[in-house]
Design a protein around this nucleic acid. Structure first.
Length: 479
RNA sequence: CGAGGUGUGGCGCAGUUGGUAGCGCGCUUGCUUUGGGAGCAAGAAGCCGCAGGUUCAAGUCCUGUCACCUCGACCA
């Protein structure tokens, strides 16, 4: 069997079967393994390292905007979950229950948190007395459980890892501002850390969070044109406060209910990274969340001086704060190239006897495989530039993919036709009626991804019923 | 929950009319190699998902059961 055949075998080509390509990358790049429980994955060291970098990037942003981390229990007593009517209706079908402690049946069953609004509310009712106690800007990094029927690594798992922010404010205005500020923070994170451009907007009533007044979302487009809801922020109003009796004495000595928000980003974002940037060679990681930003591969390292030069190179790069791996294993160089491409390492540096003679090394960018010869004295200066350029390139490529595949359509027939034949989003007017929205879903399987913040032109009509449009909506098929 | 499919070394698979398990990759050790997945040699590793049944004899046939996969349905 030829070498080329071997390489082709190792991973399903992206355009042949996107779904298989995706799961191939998950396992071949050693991000995760399937566990013995359906829908629960094992995050392997490489996958977990990416998640750690994602959490570090986000956590830094949360702290900088005044949020504090806490840790709530993982169990919610049934009675507590049921306090807010819409909330329990939304989540009840997919919660896992604990019914026994040892051999004894519990007097009240406990659900394993699918999300923690109820726990935070219960706690807030206890600790919030005065306007001086507000705002409460809490966040937690935990896993939650939702008993999904169809599961896929990272994209939809029964247990997943996330952060959930929960805040309580004295006024509605302040809570709404928090909701929008966090939406902006999420969008900035996706663009600057993950190099993923997003659309941000409001969810329709049928798509919003159970118990929320308004849900905002950042939606990303995957390489195959499907949408991935990547982060949501919810304005909860005072509905939870009333259900949980979270009141405070305001400056004018009257009792008021708090106004709340919640917001989350999950390990699903790793799935987004794969599906936005990956190619037939494997993963492509943006430098900010790459466990190794540079891999140094010595060629013929047993030869005089090669390993020493490689070690010096690594030290230079580490000294400027880069995450660097020296791959001095006894594999063949070609094997190492393929392996680190599979893992999405942004920059590979080759250094062999030939280069050392020239006083240089060869840097190869993962996304375009372009080779640059760099003088050994200049690596610490040049490599960060290459990393920044790579980030910019993969962001721009993803942005073109998003923008080129948004279609403006104003009649129902072309809407159905476009949705059936062309991958991507459709931007079209919507009257706001749930019936029209439901019809889109029924006929095309696409859903309203978000309502754009832009004003609707006077003349615009609902693409379904033809009545005057109240919103401009992005429609698409979603993961 | 409906329809279909698959369970055999770590992974991917073969196993014919029933006769007591094999291939590729990977793994271990040694030597030679090293600029796109190296070569040679010697090794280790499987009661064939589980439980019954038929048979002199079951990976293979029958019954039951469990798990997983695909497509639907479902999925704040």
């Amino acid at each position: 069997m030829s070498k080329i055949e071997k390489m082709v075998q190792s991973i399903t080509p992206r355009d042949d079967d996107f779904a298989r390509w995706y799961t191939d990358i998950c396992t071949r790049a050693e991000l995760c393994s399937y566990s013995s429980v359906k829908g629960c994955i094992i995050l392997r060291p490489y996958g977990y390292a990416i998640w750690e970098l994602i959490t570090a990037e986000l956590d830094r942003r949360f702290k900088a905007t005044g949020h504090e981390n806490v840790m709530m229990p993982m169990f919610i007593p049934e009675g507590l979950l049921q306090k807010e009517k819409d909330h329990v209706e939304g989540f009840a079908p997919e919660v896992a229950w604990v019914t026994h402690g040892g051999d004894e049946q519990l007097s009240e069953r406990l659900c394993i948190r699918p999300t923690s609004e109820t726990l935070f509310c219960d706690h807030y009712a206890e600790i919030i007395q005065s306007w001086r106690d507000l705002p409460k800007l809490y966040n937690q990094w935990v896993s939650v459980v939702r008993w999904e029927k169809t599961t896929r690594p990272f994209l939809r798992t029964r247990e997943f890892f996330w952060q959930e922010g929960h805040t309580a404010h004295a006024t509605a205005e302040e809570a709404v501002k928090e909701t929008l500020d966090m939406l902006d923070l999420y969008a900035e994170f996706f663009e600057n850390a993950l190099a993923i451009p997003v659309l941000r907007g409001l969810k329709s009533d049928s798509e919003k969070f159970a118990g929320a007044v308004q849900t905002f979302t950042v939606e990303a487009m995957m390489h195959d044109g499907k949408a991935l809801q990547s982060g949501t922020t919810h304005y909860l109003g005072d509905g939870f406060a009333k259900a949980f009796d979270i009141q405070f004495t305001d400056k004018d000595n009257t009792l008021r209910y708090v106004h709340q928000t919640s917001w989350g980003i999950s390990s699903r974002s790793i799935g987004g990274l794969i599906m936005v940037h990956g190619d037939d060679e494997g993963l492509v990681l943006p430098p900010a969340v790459a466990p190794y930003q540079v891999v140094v591969i010595p060629i013929a390292q047993h030869k005089e001086g090669v390993r020493d030069e490689a070690v010096k190179l690594v030290e230079q790069l580490k000294a400027v704060g880069l995450r660097v791996l020296l791959d001095d294993s006894d594999r063949m160089p070609g094997w190492k190239f393929s392996e680190h491409e599979m893992k999405g390492v942004p920059i590979r540096i080759e250094i062999g006897p030939r280069d050392i003679k020239e006083g240089q090394c060869i840097a190869v960018s993962r996304d375009n495989r372009e080779k640059t010869a760099i003088s050994l004295q200049q690596v610490a200066k040049e490599v960060p530039v290459l990393l920044a350029e790579l980030h910019k390139r993969i962001y721009q490529r993803a942005k073109r993919n998003l923008e080129d595949r948004i279609y403006d359509v104003d009649d129902w027939e072309s809407f159905v036709e476009t949705m059936a034949t062309v991958p991507g989003f459709i931007r079209a007017g919507w009257c706001g009626s749930p019936d029209c929205e439901a019809k889109v879903k029924e006929v095309t399987t696409a859903t309203s991804r978000c309502i754009s913040g832009q004003d609707v032109p006077e003349c615009a009509l609902c693409v379904v019923c033809g009545k005057p449009a109240r919103h401009s909506v992005y429609w698409g098929k979603a993961y």
